[in-house]
Simulated assay, not measured.
Amino acid sequence: MKRLIFLLIFALALSACSANEAEEPDDSASENTNQQTEEEMEHKDEREEEEEPAKDEESEIEVDAEAANEPQYYVAEDASVVPLEEDIDENVVLLTIDDAPAEYALEMAETLQELEAGAIFFVNGHFLDTPEEEEALRQLHEMGFPIGNHTYNHPLIPDLPEEEQKEEIVSLNDRVEEIIGERPKFFRAPNGMNTDYSEQVVVDEGMILMNWTYGYDYFEPYMDADKLAEAMISGEGPEVDVDYSLLKPGANLLMHDREWTNEALERIVNGLRDSGYEIVDPHLIQTLDEASEKE
């Protein structure tokens, strides 16, 4: 009997030891787990370090894009385009095309787009009477060209009563907005003739008043593509008593929606560039709203 009791106690003791051994952790497995965790953390840190520069580069690109859209020029009283800062290129000229969209505006826009040259298209309301003319304006806008106001019916503003002066300007802004969803930011009076009243209406409408430095395509001797190209590139118009060059940094060049101008346009752009001038992007010209925000 004593021997049986002893065997039972011995069996229970062995069973307890086995249970304790099963509960003891495996040190080697623990070490492997810790090593795995450390390696994963190291890889995670490396991935984060690699991602950070990419975020910084993306941020820099966004900042550069915003800077690229900042105004760089303003329109002076003599109609020339002047840099806002000293380190901005002054050897630029502005291209403007009046009386659009008559017959050749879209062809001219396509030529400019191929040459990567900007321009402001100043439109008249009497060229926006048909669905086809509306579509032409819409395409000019979608191609990225700013649309300017050249009055609704192209009258001489000083010949009109004040109420009609306002109607010529504001009604065209309304019409343009109806078609493209934006109001013009620039105004040019027919023949460059304004009154104190019309100039105030232009300001009230939030537009930049713009004249021009020179242009020749409305003079009969220059209703020829070859002669016009030479005159616009040189700045000289000897056949209309301009025997000296009007080409200068910031020159504001007047052209029209005309057959001979359309034919000469590519030569004009290339000739001006060969003379050391760049075609300024009109979107870089400070608008009235932008000027007010900085004050």
Rank of each mutant, 00 (worst) to 15 (best):
Q113H: 15
E168T: 03
L140W: 06
P161R: 07
H154F: 07
M1G: 13
E49Q: 15
V92H: 02
G276C: 10
E48D: 14
E90F: 06
I88Q: 04
I61Q: 13
E164T: 10
D204M: 02
A54W: 12
R273L: 08
P190N: 03
L8C: 15
E259A: 12
A22L: 15
V280T: 04
K227I: 14
E39K: 12
Q113T: 13
G181E: 07
D257I: 04
S171K: 07
E133Q: 11
E163F: 09
A19C: 10
E107P: 04
Y104G: 05
L84H: 00
S28N: 12
L247W: 01
N191K: 10
D129C: 06
E42G: 14
V203G: 07
S275M: 05
D45A: 14
N91P: 00
L115Y: 03
P53M: 11
E103P: 02
L172S: 05
Y197G: 07
D98R: 04
S275V: 00
D98A: 06
V123S: 05
E178K: 05
D89H: 08
E239N: 11
E295I: 09
E66H: 09
N69S: 15
Q113V: 09
E239C: 06
V202E: 09
S18F: 13
Y104A: 02
E39D: 10
E85A: 11
D226Q: 09
H150N: 06
F145A: 05
F186R: 04
D78N: 12
I169G: 04
S171G: 00
